[in-house]
């Protein structure tokens, strides 16, 4: 059971969180090419080691940025997206 620190609620068990994908995966506009749209839709960094991801804390429904290591599972930072906390 990993503990993730929600920027709003503090450390909570992993079962309360939902994985939202790579942090830098910006959504292209409606006129995007097939290639850039499918890049966004399907292709991932899938990094082994340090990763930057978007997560949502299902209890408070706030999305946030999490920096963690996908091998050691060390969480190095969690940051609110809107700067509220």
């Amino acid at each position: 059971m990993q503990l993730f620190t929600c920027p709003f609620c503090g450390p909570r068990p992993e079962t309360e969180f939902h994985f939202g994908g790579d942090a830098d995966n910006d959504r292209p506009g409606a006129e995007a090419s097939d290639a850039s749209w499918t890049d966004y839709l399907f292709f991932r960094h899938n990094r082994k080691g340090p990763a930057r991801e978007i997560w949502m804390h299902l209890s408070c429904r706030e999305a946030f940025l999490m920096e963690r290591d996908t091998v050691t599972h060390t969480v190095t930072a969690t940051l609110a997206l809107g700067g509220e906390a």
Partner: peptide, 13 residues
């Protein structure tokens, strides 16, 4: 497991 990982180890939940 719900968390993407290369950990190759099980967890409790």
């Amino acid at each position: 497991d719900r968390v993407p990982s290369y950990g190759q180890r099980g967890n409790l939940p």
